[in-house]
Amino acid sequence: KRARRPKPCSLRELELTVSELGLGYESDETVMLRYCSGKCAAHRHNYDITMEHMMRIGFRKKGRKDKVSNKPCCRPTAFEKDFSFLDNKSRYHTIQNVSAKNCGCA
């Protein structure tokens, strides 16, 4: 059995109806949802190593209970522009920033 190599952070695509986006619009129109997913292991900085340590013992020693994310995160660095559709009551809508355009580890 071969170990699965984790895929790096990248743009993925999925066809969905507007209703399935969860934004409260009811429309059977299908859209292409682009989103970011994947590993950011290669983008670990000293900051992340330090934060991992701080979370484990560092903060407690200094009397703090802070929570910090200790690994870079795969997120959109840009969004697709506007998107228009006709809802099931024959009204048009234009919505913004639904789909990712580029992804990056931050």
Binding site: D28, E29, T30, V31, M32, F85, L86
Partner: peptide, 13 residues
Amino acid sequence: VNRCLDAAKACNV
């Protein structure tokens, strides 16, 4: 079958 809805999908993608 709603051909107009199919057409909207084709355009959207």
